[in-house]
Simulated assay, not measured.
Amino acid sequence: MIGRALDDSLCKPCREELHLDSTSAPRAVAVISAPAQPHTATPTPVEETTPRACQGREGDAPCTREALPLRKFCRRHMVQQIAGVVA
């Protein structure tokens, strides 16, 4: 860095932008209020206390593994499902 950049630590485009903003006339800004929203009760987050069981099947028996968060299946059955879609 040389010259004025050492004084104000600004590059030429930033310095020009700062200079234009400081010398220009103040701009009129219209303030638009947001429409009034009815106040509703804040929703409480749903937390599961017990792990959900996988809905997949191991042969004729239901799977006993824990389902992935926000999913119906465990990791193994998710992989099988994705592999079935790709294949």
Score class of each variant (00 low, 15 high):
Pro38Gly: 09
Pro45Gly: 03
Ala25His: 03
Ala30Arg: 05
Phe73Val: 10
Val86Arg: 14
Ala36Glu: 10
Leu70Arg: 13
Met1Asn: 03
Ala30Thr: 06
Gly59Pro: 07
Val79Tyr: 06
Ala53Ile: 10
Glu58Gly: 06
Glu58Lys: 12
Arg65Tyr: 04
Arg15Pro: 03
Asp21Gly: 11
Thr64Met: 08
Gly59Thr: 04
Met1Tyr: 05
Val79Asp: 05
Pro35Phe: 13
Ala67Val: 03
Ala53Pro: 09
Thr40Trp: 01
Gly3Asp: 11
Ala41Tyr: 07
Ser33Trp: 09
Arg57Ile: 05
Leu6Arg: 14
Asp7His: 02
Glu47Pro: 00
Thr40Asp: 03
Thr49Asp: 02
His19Gln: 09
Pro26Arg: 13
Ala34Lys: 15
Val79Cys: 04
Val46Ala: 15
Cys63Thr: 04
Arg15Asn: 10
Gln37Arg: 10
Ala67Lys: 00
Gly56Thr: 12
Arg4Ala: 10
Gly84Trp: 01
Glu66Val: 14
Pro43Lys: 15
Cys11Ala: 07
Cys74Tyr: 00
Pro38Trp: 04
Ala53Trp: 06
Leu20Arg: 14
Gln37Val: 08
Pro69Met: 05
Val86Trp: 13
Ala30Asn: 05
Ile82Arg: 07
Gln80Cys: 07
Pro62Gly: 09
Pro35Ser: 15
Ala30Glu: 08
Val31Ala: 14
Arg76Met: 13
Glu16Leu: 08
Ile2Cys: 04
Cys54Asp: 00
Glu48Ala: 03
